[in-house]
């Protein structure tokens, strides 16, 4: 039974992988464009899931790293002619480098204070992007040389999304994942059990800043344009969090489910009712908080469609049982 499940999930992953590979060849330009957006959000959602879902720190500043990446990548590309894929890597590094000192300062705050601190900090970054207009072009923004073919961008983003999914799966099945969950449940208790909470929190914060910064850079390539309201858009933050919450925080498949469902809903809303689009995302978050705080994945677990993850935890529990008997 267990073996069959394993084969099944491997098979599903294989089919999804092949579909992702051939999609650019059979799909229209619109399909590729939509998929790039979906995958970018998927990566953002997985990154947010690490700090928000596993470590339990409500992070309202992820779009800040997205914006930093967007500007670092665009400026390198625009002024120095660095190719976009290389610029994205440097943007990811820049995200990590800014996250180290910021994490050291901001993670002194717990829970709600961390949330409002990061929220404010993102607005400051936007203000800097607007204010230092000699470097960033201010409100006018930066127009990049358009890429002729979006397919390479698609493959890069898809690969990153795959890696994020794999890493989250590894994390979910590791002691590290359990330690982060312990921090989420009770930080003081975790600390007193000898878990180096500060180091793990900062590490998670930095790790969850890298991919968003790289995605910011790729998003600028995808749009061919970047300005402060686009790079630091609160609705990117909101949509990302809505995806993780809707799918299931602190789960492997949650961000995937949330990103797919919400991307499709968003696309329909955006096409038909652009004026109420953002308010609707707000309503979706509110309804999820009130009626489905554990997300779609937990519904799947209840009905048995999705296996309850964390086999390591179950193994440990079983070992504990043996030792007792």
């Amino acid at each position: 039974m267990n073996r069959m499940k394993k084969v099944n999930s491997l098979g599903v992953a294989g089919v999804a992988g092949v579909a992702a590979l051939v999609l650019p060849f059979i799909g229209s330009d619109y399909t590729v464009s939509f998929s790039i957006q979906l995958l970018i959000f998927l990566v953002l959602a997985y990154s947010w899931n690490w700090i928000g879902g596993y470590a339990g720190y409500t992070h309202f500043g992820q779009v800040g790293f997205f914006g930093i990446g967007a500007y670092v990548g665009s400026l390198l590309n625009f002024h120095l002619g660095v190719p976009w894929y290389f610029a994205a890597i440097i943007a990811g590094l820049a995200g990590a480098l800014t996250a180290i000192p910021l994490g050291g300062a901001m993670l002194r705050l717990k829970g709600p204070f961390f949330a409002i601190g990061m929220f404010g900090l993102t607005r400051v970054l936007e203000a800097f992007a607007l204010g230092f207009d000699s470097v960033t072009g201010g409100g006018t923004g930066i127009y990049l040389k358009p890429v002729s073919d979006l397919r390479p961008v698609y493959y890069v983003v898809a690969a990153v999304a795959g890696v994020m999914l794999f890493l989250t799966w590894k994390l979910d099945n590791s002691r590290l994942g359990l330690k982060l969950l312990a921090i989420r449940e009770d930080e003081d208790a975790a600390e007193s059990l000898g878990i180096p909470t500060t180091r793990l929190k900062i590490g998670t914060f930095v790790a969850s800043a890298i991919a968003p910064a790289a995605m910011g850079s790729l998003y600028a390539v995808y749009l061919g344009f970047i300005d402060p309201p686009t790079a630091f858009a609160p609705n990117i933050e909101l949509t990302t969090i809505a995806m993780v919450l809707l799918g299931g925080m602190g789960t492997v498949l949650g961000p995937l489910c949330g990103a797919v469902v919400l991307s499709v809903v968003n696309e329909l809303l955006w096409a038909n009712y652009p004026q109420i689009y953002l308010a609707s995302v707000g309503v979706i978050i509110l309804l999820a908080v009130l009626f489905m705080p554990r997300g779609i994945v937990s519904l799947g677990m209840k009905t048995g469609w999705v296996t309850v993850s964390r086999p390591l935890f179950r193994r440990l529990a079983a070992r504990h049982g043996e030792a007792l008997s």
Binding site: G52, I276, G282, L286, V289
Partner: peptide
């Protein structure tokens, strides 16, 4: 809203008021 999520993890009330904020801004713009 808030009464129904009393006792839930803090992240829920943060997300709820954050979502409410977005709804209010956009309704105000409408």
């Amino acid at each position: 809203i808030l009464r129904r999520i009393e006792g839930a993890p803090m992240i829920m009330s943060l997300l709820a008021t954050y979502a409410l904020s977005t709804i209010l801004v956009n309704v105000a713009i409408l």
